[in-house]
């Protein structure tokens, strides 16, 4: 179980992200993929600076939900609101610059050095000069404790280090909300802690976060709210204590019995 208070060699001193987080809400989201209904009316509210953990069995629509927030997937019906403003009316590319996303498989660009993974979006999307971009990227890498790896390729890093670079790459763009799609599921157990500590730190600093996770310990400790999804709907949501200690729905009880 991650203990965010306990500094480890991999725990960051702080993410140092400069951000002005937004609130996030979904309204009656419906989405079918290949004829299968994946989201069947999802309503969620994440106040500014809060962390929502989404738990649930595979195929329950958690990852799909995240992808509707930055419009990697377009909902068939319903809406996603950032600070009350519909994302569907915004330019997807500009929207995505404000929505940081971290993937299960890290998805760093393997042909670029760690540093260039961070500077590429800064230069090409923010229009920063090489010098400024390098400076910002190195500062961000420092904050995730990987400045000394700036020049190596991602393939030479451990999974945990890669994921921290991926988080740094998202943060360096100063996102206003962060989405984590099972960010630790592909990691060896001993590497999970450092990544979770970084995520917890980010939450404490006041980032608005939606964290899809199988780490129940993390959900219990870090989340302001937990939502349990199954078959495309939010079956139950509430404070971590309420969900984990007094689950009301039989499906959640069954799920918790299976995973804990």
């Amino acid at each position: 179980m991650p203990d965010p208070q306990q500094p480890t060699d991999t725990a960051p001193a702080g993410t140092g992200a400069l951000f002005s987080p937004v609130s996030l809400a979904t309204r009656d989201l419906h989405l079918s993929l290949g004829g299968n209904p994946v989201l069947c009316g999802v309503d969620l509210d994440v106040p500014r600076g809060h962390t929502l953990c989404v738990i649930g069995p595979s195929g329950s629509g958690k990852s799909t939900l995240l992808r509707t927030v930055n419009r990697l997937l377009e909902p068939d019906r319903g809406d996603v609101l950032l600070d009350g403003e519909s994302v569907l009316r915004r330019d997807p590319n500009l929207l995505r610059q404000q929505v940081g996303m971290v993937f299960q498989q890290f998805n760093l660009f393997p042909h670029l050095s760690v540093l260039r993974n961070l500077t590429l979006p800064l230069r090409k999307l923010r229009g920063l000069a090489q010098e400024e971009a390098n400076e910002a990227a190195l500062r961000q890498l420092d904050l995730v404790g990987l400045r000394h790896k700036a020049q190596v390729r991602p393939g030479q890093l451990s999974g945990g280090q890669q994921q921290r670079v991926a988080i740094a790459r998202a943060l360096v763009m100063a996102p206003r909300v962060m989405l984590f799609d099972e960010a630790t599921s592909a990691l060896d157990p001993e590497l999970v802690k450092g990544v979770l500590a970084l995520m917890a730190e980010l939450g404490r600093e006041g980032m608005t976060m939606v964290v899809v996770t199988h780490e129940m310990g993390f959900a219990r400790e870090v989340a302001d709210r937990v939502a349990f999804m199954d078959h495309g709907v939010v079956v139950e949501s509430g404070s971590p204590q309420a969900l984990f200690d007094a689950p009301r729905s039989p499906r959640l009880r069954q799920f918790l019995a299976d995973v804990l």
Binding site: N70, L72, R96, M101, F103, K124, L125
Partner: peptide, 24 residues
């Protein structure tokens, strides 16, 4: 995943192709 990551950062499809996918 590479394309998805590039798109999630805010690169347009042509930019993602030019900067990430084709070099890869």
């Amino acid at each position: 995943g590479q394309l998805e990551a590039a798109r999630a950062l805010g690169f347009s499809y042509p930019a993602a192709m030019r900067l990430v996918i084709i070099p890869l």
